[in-house]
Design a protein around this nucleic acid. Structure first.
Lengths: 136, 136
DNA sequence: TAGCAATTGTTGTTGCGTATAACAATCCGG
DNA sequence: CCGGATTGTTATACGCAACAACAATTGCTA
């Protein structure tokens, strides 16, 4: 079948992200996480007392959409909130949050390794810098 | 702010696809299209009388989810359905569908050119093959 | 050729992710 | 001290994808 989409990097980008995301989401799902919640966990671990708003800015998630995301993580006992001042609250990992985060990192690391292994060696080192140029 | 996600190609893939997709969707939106409907238009143009099921397989969209997609395109007067046999129907572009498809292609071509222009020259030619290795 | 498995198009439902508008409470800089 | 900006939150809406089920039809094969 003729495929006029094959030569478009943008289309390949879309399909690759979708395929890779599906795999990662499935693996993270086994521990009750998704890509977004995993990202939050890792960012909170690396930046204790980070605020929900700052998190949203970093991950490009609207403030309003952080609410259910953080509520889930809090109800699962993975994060705690503590007041910084009257209106801001800092986020930290609970003990269980740290354990789950460590597990998640393992999953992510092997996933990323498998991902890179799929791209032919002569292109491999170009992938990350090329992708980063497209958004950051 | 410390960012433990920066070194992951999978994360960059996700963010890049999201950012690029948002731009393309906005531009296509001005002509009443989205990425998915644009893909359908182009594939139908290149493969007249293609079937809805075949289209779904090619684009990795479930049969059931093709229904509203095609209904929209048909109601917009961009595609026609004609019976192939008792259960299959071939899809073709209407005259207006051909015009819209040509316009969409122009938008896509400039979008793709701008996309490639953003990646540093030494990585540029590696992007498409690297991405294609991740899904096709 | 009769029958059974596979295919096609479709409906309905669910869930996720994201966008927008609005609001009260609070912070901060001039 | 005041007005604009920020924070957290609620509610709502839309697009997209997954799943199960179904009737009609096709096509292989025994």
């Amino acid at each position: 079948m003729t495929d006029p989409l094959a030569r478009y990097p943008g289309y390949a980008l879309r399909r690759a992200a979708s395929a890779a995301g599906a795999v990662l989401n499935e693996r993270l799902g086994e521990m009750g996480l998704r890509q977004a919640s995993m990202s939050v966990l890792m960012l909170v671990e690396a930046n204790p007392d980070i605020t929900a708003s700052a998190l949203g800015r970093k991950l490009d998630i609207q403030r309003a959409n952080m609410v259910p995301l953080l509520k889930r993580l809090e109800q699962a006992g993975l994060i705690d909130r503590r007041a910084i001042d009257g209106k801001s609250q800092g986020l930290v990992l609970t003990e269980e949050g740290m354990r789950t985060c460590a597990d998640a990192r393992k999953v992510v690391e092997t996933f990323e390794a498998e991902l890179l292994a799929r791209v032919p060696e002569e292109h491999r080192d170009h992938l990350l810098p090329a992708l980063n140029a497209l958004w950051d």
